[in-house]
Amino acid sequence: MRPAALWRSSAWPARLLPALVLLGLLAAWEGVVRTAHIPAYTLPAPSLVAQTLVANFGSLAGSWWVTLKITFGALALACIGGALIAALFALSPTLERALFPVAVVLQVTPIVAVAPLILIYVESTTAALLLCAWIVAFFPILSNTVIGLRAADANLRDLFRLYRATPWQRLRLLRMPAALPYFVAGLKISGGLSLIGAVTAEMVAGAAGRETGLASRILEASFRTETPKMFAALALLVATGVMIFWLFNALSRWLLGPWHASESSRPL
């Protein structure tokens, strides 16, 4: 686009809007802290948090990496597990009827209560944290994919019957692609849940020594009354959540863009 056209185009304000809102909120926060003289150990100003983040970035980055590993590890396992189990359920309705209640039980079990128990039974702390985050993250993927695998258009199903497709062909060429939008929707939900699960599990059950994630750093800062550091670690967590959200939105656009109504640019 020519520069003049760029300025006039309506895309710019729309794209800048979220950033402007965020900056506005941060400015308001800073203003409130300064005018009300709120002490740093109660509510630090964004400028102080930023300073602390930069000053401690080396050590916080290590913990950030640990949390990222657990989050994405659990998410990958939830994808594989959720999709596999959903495919099994699709191929065998009796299996689905038998095992779906188990899945529901896993979904509703509060991770806060279960995490300490898991940590007792499982040897490795990393495995225990992965398991906790997996429990939280896998159900949306499973549930959505199961629905998706049933969502193929009735006429398309007839078409495949007409051409005598084998069950495997049906699964691969019809049901799985039809399930993709639902799977991606589940993935978007599970992305955030996986982060929450990893953080909750670490907060409740704790991690040790060198393998500490951001949740442990938040706790440590809170115990040592280092509130700006706590907020710095929290800011990294929030950034991770936002990054996951953007990532899966981009993934959804890439996978579904050319053909699914949810990614269509036409106004509703």
Partner: peptide, 20 residues
């Protein structure tokens, strides 16, 4: 309805019966 596979191109849609 046209009943095409929405995730496949026109080529892949027409190929489908042969593919099966």
């Amino acid at each position: 309805e046209p009943t095409l596979l929405p995730w496949a191109s026109v080529f892949d849609n027409v190929w489908l019966p042969l593919r099966l």
